[in-house]
Amino acid sequence: MTDTARSTKGSIELLSFTVGGEDYSVDIMSVREIRSGTTATALPHAPDYVRGVINLRGNVLPILDLAVRLGLPHAPGADARHVIIVVDVGNRTVGLMVDAVSDILTAAQDDLQPPPDVGTGGGQGHVSALFVMNDRLYRVLDLGSVLPAIALDAA
């Protein structure tokens, strides 16, 4: 990760990763760190995509299972070797459990296009844009929408 994330005008740096066999990405400015998975402590009464919480250097970090959240199948054996992308969303920090981190991509803002309206299928609402690079379709994750809504309601 570099400090020059937005050095090129009109372009955006994205961290790409795979989850449930699909290519996703997040704005690298939101990414705080990447770490290998550790055992999470389960939270009672939590939605199924909340894996639990882990200790991130003395802080309690909630872990979201992104595949479950997006309604995607778990890659076989993914549990054993999953990766956690720690992201800042607003004033909260959460860990996204994904299959694997792939690359850092630079996409021109012009190449990003809004997701087409394809009905109300699961997961679609969590994508803020799409772009194609090297013949692969990448989805840009809408971080705000994947956070557990319960966190605030139940407070």
Binding site: P44, H45, R92
Partner: peptide
């Protein structure tokens, strides 16, 4: 602050 209130916790 990180997650919210959990019943019983």
């Amino acid at each position: 602050s990180s997650y919210g209130r959990i019943p019983g916790i």
